[in-house]
């Protein structure tokens, strides 16, 4: 029991700094970036360039996957297409730049490079499949 509480407090300490900062940035992003811009670049009609932008956005963010959900909500509410939202989640989990040093250090450049290329292929495919399957009635809620 004691150990569980210690673990919990450890996570909490990590999150208590990270998350408020993230939400601060998300809030500012929300008021400063106009919907029209997001819609044009990563919305319904967007193609390869749109994918590039969401992947770039995802790779520079540190943190666990659930930290990406609120960002996904903001992107959705500003008109991002379903495919790009799932590609964003994939890139966030597989290609986060802050982790490269760890991966190369412990598993080598070859492993890192192969994993990067193959996961890119896989999560982009997942994005396409997800849009196909949930496209029309796809909604992201605020997480209440």
């Amino acid at each position: 029991m004691e150990q569980i509480i210690i673990n919990f407090l450890m996570f909490l300490r990590e999150m208590i700094v990270l998350l408020p900062l993230m939400f601060l940035l998300i809030g500012l992003f929300d008021v400063w970036v106009p919907r029209e811009k997001i819609e044009r670049h990563i919305g319904q009609g967007s193609g390869l360039a749109g994918m590039f932008w969401v992947i770039l956005l995802a790779t520079v963010q540190p943190g666990p996957l659930y930290g990406a959900f609120p960002v996904a909500y903001i992107l959705y509410s500003k008109g991002a297409r379903a495919r790009n939202i799932f590609i964003y989640l994939g890139a966030f989990s597989c290609m986060a730049i802050p982790m490269y040093a760890f991966e190369i250090g412990f598993l080598g450049v070859k492993f890192w490079f192969l994993r990067l290329i193959f996961s890119l292929l896989v999560f982009v495919s997942i994005g396409f499949i997800m849009e196909r399957c949930v496209g029309k009635d796809f909604k992201v809620r605020e997480g209440e």
Binding site: F11, P20, G27, P70
Partner: peptide
């Protein structure tokens, strides 16, 4: 307005997040 927006979203997420952190622990 942005800070308010972020704070509201954070508070909405908080209960579910604490529950997940507890599960992970």
């Amino acid at each position: 307005a942005g800070i308010k927006r972020g704070t509201i979203m954070f508070l909405k997420l908080l209960p579910a997040l604490l529950f997940v952190l507890f599960l992970v622990s």
